[in-house]
Design a binder for these strands. Structure first.
Lengths: 225, 225
DNA sequence: GCAAAAGTGTTGACTATACACCCATGT
DNA sequence: ACATGGGTGTATAGTCAACACTTTTGC
């Protein structure tokens, strides 16, 4: 590792104390008409994002992915790095590093719905419990990430189990974008994008016409611009 | 720091050796018709991104910003975090953390053009010298970041000194997007966006009609969607 | 007067939006 | 028969892309 141009201004790399390193995950999902996030109780009645210390021999991405899998019991969630905070630690000359990730997962497992694993629970993003201060900004970042990207890249597949109805998918878009969408225009846009295809099957649930079921044609996140 | 749900699966935080931490910066600029990046010679004839170890008491963002300022001699460059790579170090159970940043800076200082500070030099992003492998991907990430965001948020201000002509600004967009733009449509779009305003002054340079000079109405990066 | 870059509008294609009714089912 | 959510088309406004000539200067 070259440390370039460090001799000027008297930088002294060796003076840095070993950083503490933590991986935090913002796991988001859509339940009914709510965007929800998985939180765990922490000190002083506050809640926190699930976090973990990376194991020896695994990358940060692996740490995040395995934690998401453990907490959601869902194998192919969408997991992406958000940001790294690296502030001087309060005490002494240490450094606290927090690497945050966003993950998107369908709200329900195929069978039933474990409301969370261990002490984690789903909370509405609109009215979350008091959070550890650091995690407020991380949650905000995750939300901005999602709002910004969902319309431009078909991230929605990761928030819905296959197969789904177009109304379910529309709800996902409405919840994330926090606005109502026109049903006809939404369907026109979606079908012309070629990202979904009908399975040919129907779902009957309730006193109304059954809904056609669809699936995504690809599971790779693809930009739509 | 709470380490949540770590007791399952026998995670042992204490087993992690102290990570090595480095901040790398991809400093991009536009010179003539080229997108250029600041590189420094490294081992084995390879080149590397400028990198530095954060000083005690400063945040990662501060580390990146001060390095950019030192290398470009430009005070208000655009600097944003790109990604953090955290791989198990080759030897033993350590961990190598690289936090990368992208920075955008005007190619020339008002007076002249220091081609780089210390052993750094500008290289074309199209045909760069052989790079340290890790930095290939970082450079690619930086480029994708810029290509994706430049059209949607007026980042271009950070690549041009004030004041500028509309032709100069058009070249910036063309270089970043790697395609020719129509002059009339570009001007229509730009002027209707309200992001630039004429200064009223002209610049005469060469055997042709003088160009009007413009400035940005704001220096805060603002989305255009 | 000529070379070289600056500056300027119109048209057609496409995209996005607004909007209201019938359909299939369960009760 | 009625309540419930599923499903469908058209007309308009706005946005985006293509395109060519005149202006002002230095030499």
């Amino acid at each position: 590792m070259e440390t370039v141009a460090d001799t000027e201004e008297g930088r002294s790399p060796a003076a840095s104390a070993p950083p503490e390193l933590v991986v935090e995950v913002v796991i988001l999902s859509v339940r009914g008409a709510d965007l929800v996030v998985l939180l765990t109780p922490a000190h002083d009645g506050l809640h926190a994002l699930p976090q973990t210390v990376p194991r020896v021999g695994e990358t940060l991405d692996q740490t995040a992915a395995s934690q998401v899998q453990r907490l959601t019991r869902h194998a192919d969630a969408y997991v992406r790095q958000l940001y790294t905070w690296g502030e001087p630690a309060g005490s002494g000359n240490g450094r606290a590093l927090q690497v945050s990730y966003i993950a998107l997962s369908p709200a329900e497992d195929p069978e039933g719905q474990p409301a969370g694993v261990g002490d984690c629970r789903w909370w509405s993003v609109e009215k979350p419990p008091p959070l550890v201060p650091r995690h407020e900004r991380t949650l905000r970042q995750a939300r901005e990430y999602l709002e910004e990207r969902l319309p431009h890249t078909h991230l929605a597949w990761s928030l819905l189990p296959d197969p789904f109805t177009l109304s379910e998918l529309q709800v996902v878009y409405e919840v994330v974008q926090r606005r109502a969408l026109d049903k006809r225009n939404f369907r026109k846009w979606l079908l012309s994008s070629g990202l979904v295809e009908p399975t040919g099957r129907l779902r009957c649930e309730g006193a109304h016409r059954p809904a056609r079921l669809y699936r995504f044609t690809t599971r790779e996140p693809r930009p739509l611009d």
